[in-house]
Amino acid sequence: PPASETSPVEFDSAISYVNKIKNRFLDHPEIYRAFLEILHTYQKEQLEVKESRGSRGSSGMTEDEVFSKVASLFKGQEDLLAEFGQFLPDA
């Protein structure tokens, strides 16, 4: 598929990954919510950067920062973290 479009494979793996996390942390919904919050913040900052076109010299939350936040959240859940790394560009 063209690089500008999300392929069904990418969408499906994202869906099953989100489901996996949701199920893994059924007893700790606050961890799952924190994970959603990290992704939400990342997306929001990316949009803000796009809108300001970097004029303020800010690049928003980087993927490295997202990864380290998720890493501290998923402590002891190495499989989830490894899988998360597969979604990140230049991981």
């Binding site: 392929s7 990418e10 994202a14 989100v18 489901n19 939400h40 990342y42 997306q43 230049d90």
Partner: peptide
Amino acid sequence: SYDFTPLDSSAVYVLSSMARRRRASQS
């Protein structure tokens, strides 16, 4: 079954966009 809230869907969207950019940067 997939019982997704809007927040869940937004996480799916963010993850699949990341994966798309990863593919774009690799090709």
